[in-house]
Amino acid sequence: MARIGILILAAGASTRLGQPKQLLFYQGKPLIRQMAEVAIASNCQPVGVVLGAHAEAIKPHLSNLDIHIFYNENWSRGMASSIQCGLREMLRVSVELDAIVLMVCDQPFVSPDLIHKLIAGYRDLNYPIVASEYAGILGVPALFHKTFFPELLTLQGDVGAKSIIRQHHSHSLSIPFNQGIIDLDTPQDLQFLS
């Protein structure tokens, strides 16, 4: 069986929202814990969470979970630094990692079922990149085979994995995830949590 890990990117400062989005309550718990529990329920191992801004406030909400917490000292440089930090640490935790699923902490409607569909596209249909499709774009959650790890490790600035998906569009499978368009960036977005 291929060893597939999950990396949750949760290091941002949530400046547009005005409060740490990781700690917004959803289904009776902080969003970051909800996302970690979804990752665990997918049965992928290992599960890693990258923290940065507000790490001390967030970390207690991840206690007693079978996950690895990584701290990105360079979180203010953007998403790419969190992908690099998290992927390097995941490869230390599990040198035999065959693929990784990248998630962000502010897509509240990600489910274990969606993650299973990404994995099925990889295992059953042999696609090296399997991405979620919403609003006409391919994005996260997305699975990347280890052949793309070097590219993920060279991303710069506030560039996420979407750029790699775009570059390798012909090798990418899309999984419909209409609710993926809902992420929590501004106070107006909070209506989707109610």
Rank of each mutant, 00 (worst) to 15 (best):
A2G: 01
R3S: 12
R3Q: 13
I6H: 02
L7A: 02
A10Q: 08
R16W: 08
G18T: 12
G18P: 14
G18C: 12
G18Q: 10
Q19A: 12
Q22W: 01
Q22L: 02
Q22F: 01
Q22G: 05
Q22A: 11
L23Y: 05
L23I: 11
L24H: 06
K29G: 07
P30L: 01
L31T: 06
I32P: 03
Q34T: 10
E37V: 11
E37I: 05
E37L: 07
A39T: 04
A41V: 03
A41D: 09
S42N: 05
S42Q: 07
S42M: 05
C44I: 04
Q45P: 08
Q45T: 15
V50D: 03
V50Y: 03
L51N: 00
G52C: 09
H54S: 11
H54V: 07
I58G: 02
P60W: 10
L65D: 01
L65I: 02
D66A: 15
I67Q: 02
H68K: 08
F70M: 07
Y71K: 01
S76G: 09
R77F: 11
G78C: 12
G78Y: 05
M79H: 11
A80P: 08
S81E: 14
Q84R: 12
C85F: 03
G86E: 04
E89C: 00
M90S: 10
L91N: 06
L91Y: 00
L91S: 02
E96V: 05
D98Q: 13
D98S: 14
I100G: 05
V101Q: 06
V101K: 01
L102G: 02
L102I: 15
V104Y: 09
S111N: 05
S111I: 07
P112Y: 10
P112G: 10
D113A: 15
D113M: 12
L114W: 06
L114R: 02
I115R: 00
L118D: 03
L118H: 08
A120M: 13
G121Q: 00
R123N: 14
D124I: 06
D124K: 13
L125I: 08
N126G: 10
Y127M: 13
Y127E: 09
Y127H: 14
E133G: 05
E133I: 03
A135S: 14
G136Q: 12
I137P: 04
I137Y: 11
I137R: 13
L138C: 10
G139H: 00
A142R: 01
F144G: 00
F144N: 01
F144I: 04
H145Q: 12
H145C: 09
H145W: 06
K146L: 06
K146C: 07
L152S: 01
L152H: 02
L153I: 08
L155A: 00
G157P: 06
S163R: 12
S163L: 14
S163C: 13
I164G: 04
I164D: 02
I164W: 02
Q167R: 14
H168N: 13
H169C: 14
H169L: 15
H171I: 14
H171A: 15
H171V: 07
I175W: 11
P176S: 13
F177I: 07
F177M: 08
F177K: 00
I181A: 09
I181K: 10
I181N: 04
I182T: 14
I182R: 12
D183E: 14
Q188G: 10
L190S: 07
L190W: 12
L190V: 13
F192H: 15
F192K: 08
S194E: 15
